Simulated scan of single mutants.
Amino acid sequence: MFGSGLEIKTPDEVLVMREAGLVVGRTLELLRGAVRPGITTAELDRLAEEHIRDCGAVPSFLGYGDPPFPATICTSVDDEVVHGIPGSRELVEGDVVSIDCGAIVDGWHGDAAITVPVGEIADDVAELLRVTEEALWRGLAAARLGGRVGDISHAVESHVRSQGGYGIVEGYTGHGIGSEMHLNPDVPNYGKPGRGPRLRRGLALAVEPMITLGSPETDLLDDDWTVVSSDGSWAAHFEHTLALTADGVWVLTAEDGGRERLEALGAAYGGPAA
């Protein structure tokens, strides 16, 4: 059902999205454990596709867009912000790799991303990862029934700004999600609270801060997919899919539904009791 241009899910539809979200979350944890010096991004992609299909799901990204995306996951290394294409590149000690993954179960999508260190990484890069992931959770915790999308955006931006001079990428945003991977509304990682569409029960959103160590400006490579920082600074990207329920926020791509992190931030957890 669409209301105010937004796709509003029934509780049963949210349950199917939870199934897709768990496939995504578990795939990312599998890949986190596989990241090591010497592995190629194509090998990570193969692991992801096998796991998603073994779970009875379908990769969201494979064949998506124009030109069609040629892989199951996005692997964005170092200064690559998002949408990196897996291939023969070997990860080396000190790299970071953002892994973005989507899966479809019975026509409903889940979408999430993590940024993983390859062995030991520089202190400033480790701090970038910490700040970006915490900004994601601050954004998720700011989602409340009756609130606005801008509340999420403001929470992400406020946390990043409080931590130092990081670049908040503006040209790419979070998004609505459900029967398609990308739906209205956009969910920017900056903005004022109280602005944008109202947050309603049954709305599902993908929240995804993309933060750099330098400039927020980006460039698109000739493959028409890979986005890099314009100044070559390294980037981090974290993402979860949430649904708004009658009780609060349910993070569909987190194994525990986001309960621990949400409650620690004083937010209402909206998933099952157990």
Rank of each mutant, 00 (worst) to 15 (best):
I85H: 07
G266W: 09
V131W: 03
A143D: 02
V207P: 00
R148S: 09
G258E: 10
L244P: 00
V169C: 04
L47T: 01
P185Y: 03
I121P: 00
R259W: 11
A20S: 13
M17W: 11
A57M: 09
S153M: 03
L44R: 08
D95P: 08
V187K: 14
S4R: 07
A143Q: 07
D111K: 01
R89V: 10
L91H: 05
W234S: 03
S162K: 12
G174T: 08
R148D: 00
S153L: 01
E80L: 15
V207M: 05
E80I: 14
S179F: 15
D222K: 13
D123A: 12
I8N: 01
S4D: 14
A103L: 08
E19P: 00
A143K: 01
D111R: 05
G38V: 08
R261Y: 09
T241S: 08
A122Y: 10
D79H: 15
I85V: 15
V24C: 03
G21N: 10
L220E: 11
W225F: 11
L62Q: 10
G110L: 08
A20N: 02
E90L: 11
Y172G: 02
T40M: 10
D45A: 01
S98T: 13
N184E: 08
V227Q: 04
A267Y: 07
P37H: 15
D123I: 04
I39G: 02
L128P: 04
L203W: 01
G119M: 11
V187F: 09
D223G: 13
D186T: 12
A274H: 12
G38Q: 14
V125N: 04
E239Q: 11
V118E: 07
E217Q: 15
A274P: 00
G196R: 00
P209R: 04
D79M: 14
R130P: 05
